[in-house]
Structures are given as structure tokens and as C-alpha cells.
Design a protein around this nucleic acid. Structure first.
Lengths: 333, 333
DNA sequence: CTGTTAGCGCTTTCAG
DNA sequence: CTGAAAGCGCTAACAG
């Protein structure tokens, strides 16, 4: 139904090769240039990317695997990634693993069948074995946000441990001694941030009661549940460090429902600056991830690798989180 | 690099046609069946979808155009749509228009070049002209959530006007007379919900001061700004109907910062049940859109249309929003 | 600069 | 049920 390059040949009398060459940026005589331009416009000709892909072996399509597309954190990242890919002429094929490990495995194969030129992964698992088929196929991979154990891929993360340390140190500087943490150990990010918490506490010689360390999952409901438990302790903490965006939400919800108020009774320090920190009152202190940079950098690394013929050593980019001040911390005399 | 069907031919001694037929579900002798299975497994053969697409003229890929992928509302919908498409063997190519009309135009062409089998649109514009190239190309289209003026496409929406009426009537039944609305007239959904508000007020013989009707945009900041203005009025409303998810956020933020409290001084009724209504205290009354159904239905309509050879008349599906009760409404004497 | 030829990997007639 | 051959729309040598 749509016009093909052969129709352009009919219309111009030129050969397929000449037309193809011009369409791909080659040089032809001005006279022919005009002829082709005219025919293209008149016939509404658009190159068939599928056919092109079959011969060039590049589809100009990048597969993006994400553990949950509905999360606003990932959505924000996908937005940046998608825009940048598009700017560079690439399409974005998204696979939502929905936190399911098996799905993640299957997604890799799915993307390979689609012959994507490269894959960007925001992984569910810390175990990177699921990427093996892509490695075997020689398809470039970039891992974002969450690192994967023992991988040989390009990787873009932030300084999770140091950022957490900075957050906890801020609480300590404000005079807090009884500081709890809510995070997850399953994910790379959560476990690194926990380390930062532990480190800051240790450096300052502070004790950590066992019940102050909540390591479950990075979800609203886990944050909510954990905060309720913390507030119900005989000796509740005076400050809480929340190591993830969704946890922020749950914690704030629990505090709102309780008799405690922030920052008078409980000080809060969260992670990620998306919506909550700004809409809530008092304004939440957070460590802000450079999400746009994370997205841009991952695209940059991937396209660089796709573009280069020689093999490149894996690169690890570590970006820095920055502190956004708020009103959610009480200074203790 | 990866195995092709020719490698299978080498390995089995059968012809391309036989192998292809079997791989596509055809019947072959049990003996050959085994041979092929064995070779496929041993060589890790996976069909090249690009080559297949070139000859069958179907790519098993659906283009999804969305006005903002970072919004949690769209993310939730995309999650459902993506899962269902995948279940049916289709991939999802996402184009974020970022609220940009020109981008939306360009995205259609982009998807057509990628030879998608169909397009699902959550549109930026009420004007559907940007879809013309897809119509011309005969690519099936389904429009979700926001209808498009004078379109001939399949369309899945909710009963926006009636839902808004129900919300406002609930406020009226609780004794409220001074009711304001914050919405947008630019989008289809917002304008329908405004009509519902106006209708409910009129039916109950209630006056609507001009300054009670805020029609700007469906954004957090517009909600915030409008609510501040409403609360600063000499005679502020006793209740506010918020016609969109993002507006909810802005309004709640403004109330939190003010001297008013909900529901004592101001009653609130919102739209969409995503995160906010449950994490805030008091729990927000909302009209809940059946987002999962919206997504599933749109995929169903699209695949049905792709599957059928005969032309089908456009179908309009209207789903119903349901009320989720909360604690954000005060009953007045 | 232009044209001819071959072929990407697969499906699909049409004979056998 | 199986195989030979043609071709999807395009690009990539290689001659001219």
C-alpha cells in the first residue's frame, strides 16, 4: 500500500541504488536530487525501516527493561531516556518486568528476537545471569541505577553509600542520637544505602538497637508498616532515614495517622526528590538523585558502544546525589 | 552471528519451507519434528522477527503514544497495556509526546516508519488531525482516556460527566452550598468533568460565583495556585471538587500550608485513586477510574481490529468510575 | 555520479 | 507432507 523505493524509480527513471544512496545522505546531481525530492513528496514515500533493518542489521531500536513502569521514579527516568533516544533517531521498546524474575529472563530473549541494537536495564535482580543471552548475542548493555553483581557491563549509578552517610550525618549534626533506618537489602541501592547508615552511625559511636533497622522491601506498604512499628516502640527513635522513594510515602502516611508530628516529635530524611518532598508540609529533607543525568548518561554510553567497532572495556559511572534541605529535621539542643 | 533457518536446514537436511512451516505451527512427520526441535535447541535458533515482519507485513509491535510517560496515571495504564500486549505476543513501542503537539505529529510518522501493526493513543490534543497519516496508511488506532474531536476511531473512555456529577452531588448531600471546582478545559476529560460540575450545581439550584470556577491545566502547580486563590477569597468555598489526579496533589499541598484544615474548614473531593488518596490523612474521597479495564479494553479493541479482515465500524466504549469514600468531607448541619 | 547484481532471513505459492 | 523458487523493501559491493 505505501510507496516503495521502486515507485520512486518509476517516477524518476533513476536506479534503486542512486535513490537509496541519496536517501541515506549520499551525493547525487542537483537535477536528480530534485526529481527524487519531488517524487518522495508526491508519493508520500517513507523508507520501510523493517526492510532497512534486515539488510543493515541495525533496527535503530533500543530495548529498555524496567522492573516497574508504573513507578514515578522509573517513569521519570524513562521519560529522559526516551526523549534522548528519540533525539538520536532511536525508538524505545519497553519491557516491564513487574518485579518478576522470570519475566525478566523472558524479556531479554524477547528483545533479542526483536533485534534491538542495545539494551538499557533497570534491573529487578541483583543477579545478572538473566543477561547472558544478550551477552552471547553481542548486544550492548547498559545497567542503570541498580548495579548487578559481578557484571561486565557498562553501569551508571549514584554514590548510594556516601549519600546515605551524608543524610545520616546531617541528622547527627542536628543532635539526633536515636536514628532508625528503613530500607531494603534485596536491591543493590537499598543495601548500599544501609551500609552508609551503618557507617555514619559507627563513625559517630552511636548505638544501633536492632529494632531500629528495618530491611524489608522498597514499597509504600513496607514503609508504612515499619514506621508504625518504630513509633510504637517503648523508646521510639527521634529521627528516621528513609532509603527510597516509595518508603517515603509510606512513612509520611504513618506519621500523619499517628499522634506524632514532624519535625516536633520525629525528624525525617528521605530519598529522591519527585513529588512528595515538595507537596508535603513540612518540606522533606531528601537526597536528590540526578535522574536526568542518569538517563542521559546511560543513553550516551550505550550509543557510544553501539557506534564503536572495537570492543571497549566496561565503564562504571558514579554520579552524585545532592542534599535538598527542608523543614523536616528538628535541631536538638 | 545468531543461527538462521538455513543453519537448521544444514543440521536437518530438510528444506526451508518445511522448517518454516513447522516453526509456524504446521504439521510435519514426527521424525522431522524431532530433528528440527533438536537442531533448534542445539543451535539456540530464534526466528528473526525483522525478516519475518518484512514478508508477513506484520511486526507484532504496537505503538503507544502517551502525552507524558512520567505521570503515575499514564504509567499505571501503560503497565496494564504492556502486560496484556506482551501476553498476546506483541511488543510495545512507546512514544512520549511530552505534552508537545508537534512531537505528537512527528510520533505518528515515526511509528508508521517502524511499521507498527496498530497504535494506542492517550492524546495530548483534542484535535485528532495528527492521526491522519495513520488513517491513510490503514493502521488501526484506539484512543484511550481522552476522546478526540470528531474521530472515527475506536475509543475507550469513562463517564466523565456523570462521575463529576456524582462527586458534586455527594458534596451537596453533605450540606455544602459553596462548592468550587478546579479543572482544565483544554483536555477532553477536564471539560467533561466541568460539565458534570455545572450540571449538578444547576440541578440543585446552586449559584456559582465566577471565582469558584478554575479552569487552567491539569498540573500540580495549577492545583496549588488555584487552591491558594480560593482559600484567600473573602468568602471561600466550603468544598472543592478536583477534577484530576495532579490537581489533587497541588490542592492538598496548598491546604497543608494554609491555616485551613480538611475536613473541618474545607471539604475535598478528588479524582483518581492512585497513591495520594490513601497516603494522606484524612483519606480523600475520590472518583476512581477503572484504569486496568481501560487498558485491557483498549488492547482488546485494537487486536480485534488488527485480526479482522473486514472493516469494522468505530466503537465507543464508556466505562464507569466508582466512588471511593474517605474522610475528607464534613457534613454540614 | 550512476546502474547492475546480489542478498539480508524469512514466508509463501505451487508442484511433486 | 515436502521442496524449489520467488520475493518482501532495502542496502552494499562493484563496475561503468
Amino acid at each position: 500500500m505505501p510507496a516503495t523505493i521502486k515507485d520512486i524509480r518509476e517516477a524518476t527513471g533513476l536506479s534503486l541504488a542512486t535513490i537509496s544512496k541519496y536517501l541515506n545522505g549520499g551525493n547525487v546531481l542537483p537535477k536528480n536530487r530534485e526529481k527524487i525530492d519531488e517524487a518522495v513528496k508526491r508519493l508520500h514515500y517513507r523508507p520501510n525501516e523493517i526492510a532497512r533493518g534486515l539488510v543493515t542489521n541495525r533496527t535503530k531500536t533500543i530495548g529498555v527493561m524496567v522492573y516497574n513502569i508504573a513507578s514515578i521514579f522509573n517513569g521519570t527516568m524513562l521519560s529522559t531516556i526516551g526523549k534522548e533516544l528519540r533525539r538520536q533517531g532511536y525508538a524505545m521498546l519497553i519491557c516491564d518486568s513487574a518485579g518478576d524474575t522470570e519475566m525478566e529472563h523472558s524479556n531479554v530473549q524477547f528483545l533479542l528476537n526483536k533485534k534491538v541494537d542495545g539494551i538499557i536495564v533497570i534491573p529487578t535482580e541483583r543477579n545478572g545471569d538473566f543477561l547472558q543471552p544478550a551477552r552471547d548475542a553481542g548486544v550492548p548493555i547498559v545497567i542503570v541505577d541498580r548495579a548487578v553483581d559481578g557484571s561486565e557491563e557498562d553501569c551508571v549509578t549514584i554514590n548510594n553509600k556516601e549519600a546515605a552517610e551524608e543524610a545520616v550525618n546531617t541528622l547527627i549534626c542536628a543532635g539526633h542520637r536515636k536514628i532508625a533506618v528503613i530500607c531494603s537489602e534485596r536491591e543493590y541501592t537499598g543495601s548500599r544505602r544501609l551500609l552508609g547508615y551503618l557507617e555514619a552511625m559507627k563513625q559517630n559511636g552511636l548505638e544501633i538497637p536492632e529494632e531500629y533497622v528495618k530491611t524489608g522491601s522498597q514499597t509504600v506498604s513496607y514503609g508504612y508498616q515499619s514506621m508504625r512499628e518504630l513509633l510504637a516502640l517503648p523508646e521510639p527513635p527521634t529521627a528516621v532515614f528513609m532509603a527510597n522513594y516509595d518508603i517515603n510515602f509510606g512513612v509520611v502516611m504513618a506519621v500523619n495517622e499517628s499522634d506524632f508530628s514532624c519535625p516536633e516529635d520525629i525528624s525525617l530524611f528521605g530519598f529522591d526528590d519527585l513529588l512528595l518532598p515538595r507537596i508535603m508540609s513540612p518540606k522533606l529533607y531528601v537526597m536528590k538523585q540526578p535522574m536526568e543525568e542518569l538517563g542521559l548518561k546511560s543513553v550516551e554510553l550505550l550509543l557510544e558502544r553501539i557506534g564503536s567497532k572495537e570492543p571497549m572495556p566496561p565503564r562504571q559511572i558514579v554520579l552524585k546525589a545532592t542534599m535538598m534541605k527542608g523543614d523536616s529535621i528538628r535541631t536538638i539542643g
